[in-house]
Design a protein around this nucleic acid. Structure first.
Lengths: 247, 247
DNA sequence: ACAAAAGTGTTTTTAATACACCCATGA
DNA sequence: TCATGGGTGTATTAAAAACACTTTTGT
């Protein structure tokens, strides 16, 4: 992949489930992969962005690097959520061949550390994505994927859903300025449920993690909504240290 | 360690933070390790139970195996919670020497998958523990540890605390029969806070995950408490699918 | 009879839910 | 003037929190 020679650790990799939100869909950034099928014909499918670790590289650094190469973004919300190490996760012929083609090594076993990232699609660099044959796929229309990447996405989604209910991270998927309704739609789409708009506003505004801007929407054929922005300081100041158990 | 030769994968290991609860303390099972200090003198410190993976072994299997070797227990609550892969996690001389001594290899870099386990100390096999020089240490009095094991314990504890508030797993740390007060003490010790006993009982009984037995405590110098047991079926039947966000 | 922990009920406060109409804008 | 989505308030219900005394046993 790289022109400059690298020394990789062929036993450990990172894979990133990069979430984005656009046109009211939760999306995942997937990379088109070219491989030789059983008849030796060139075909394509998709895979998660990921890479082997460089020798002496940190896991988090490898994930950050992967993310930056694809989106041009730094300082992104990035969270390790699981390790996948089934011996049979590299069992299909095409996967083995593809590894040989891209690394020049016979690789039979890789343990991968899975991360999920939350990014604002509008701020990501489209050139970087195109150059890497990356595209944003609706989480409900994921095509056939390499390795066990479908399972990685699924458990990544479950972790995102849980985190979204506990920490104010929805903002990471939106532009800096957003309307309350956009935030609500995001919650509804990611959690797959719907909320009463009055109660949703109340809850968000009570949590005091958001501040209203002077600016309104423009050019919309209805009453324009105010923009808000996430305010981490206010959130930290107001957050309740709750110890309560719910099961 | 083993008499029979094994083929290990020297890049990947598992480490288990095995939690137990006794005499009102949260405890962790630690193994005494012998090593040569910088003057070549034999000394000891402690480490987490863990091992390299066998070639073609599954991560979960390696953790289960480690657990069984030390406690004689099977079917234990076991949860992967993080991966530790800092390049400098094997940086101290004694750690490098110890690896060389025990594996016969020069190992500079290991990525470890960390698990936490919840066990009932009274059911665990003390012989197994003694044979492995293992002992139950108060989580608040952890001695100096090998590698980055202190950090692994710390984040394991944080994961346990979070899980305890969301899922009914406290029972895993208690004998089959337990009193409500024992359960409350466990919650208080693990979460480091205290609860009103009336409200605690109400909450536990309302959640319907526990059934009262006919049996009472015997030989206690106060009103004897009823024993209860955890009932997974009742729990599954009564649990509420809550989607609500708290932050 | 005393000490020690078990067990119990009610009131107050807070959070969650359910619900319907008017408002500002572009077309 | 109409269609569209934004924005608001109140009443009801459910859950959490605060709080103090009686009971049963062993010594």
């Amino acid at each position: 992949m790289n022109a400059t020679p690298r020394t990789i650790n062929p036993h450990i990799s990172v894979d990133c489930v990069i979430f984005g939100f656009s046109t009211n869909r939760l999306r995942v950034l997937l990379i088109e992969r070219e491989y030789l099928d059983e008849n030796g014909v060139r075909a394509t499918d998709h895979k998660l962005p990921g890479d082997f670790m460089d020798i002496d590289e940190d896991l988090d650094s490898a994930a950050t690097r992967t993310l930056e190469e694809l989106t041009g973004l730094r300082n992104i919300y990035l969270q390790q959520f699981a390790v996948f190490g089934q011996p049979d996760r590299i069992s299909r012929l095409v996967d083995m061949q593809w590894l040989k083609e891209t690394t020049g090594m016979e690789i039979r076993r890789v343990v991968t550390s899975a991360y999920y990232a939350l990014i604002n699609i509008t701020e990501s660099n489209e050139e970087f994505a195109l150059k890497n044959r990356a595209s944003w796929m609706d989480i409900h229309r994921i095509p056939a994927l390499a390795f066990d990447h479908a399972a990685i996405i699924q458990t990544g989604l479950e972790h995102l859903q849980k985190a979204l209910q506990i920490e104010p991270i929805g903002f990471e998927l939106l532009p800096e300025k957003f309307t309350i309704r956009e935030l609500q739609s995001l919650y509804e789409v990611v959690l797959g449920s719907s909320f009463d708009n009055r109660n949703f506003r109340k809850k968000i505004l009570k949590s005091a993690c958001v501040v209203q801007l002077d600016e309104k929407q423009r050019g919309v054929a209805h009453k324009p909504a105010f923009y808000y922005r996430f305010d981490r300081n206010r959130y930290e100041a107001h957050k309740k240290e709750y110890i309560s158990f719910n099961f």
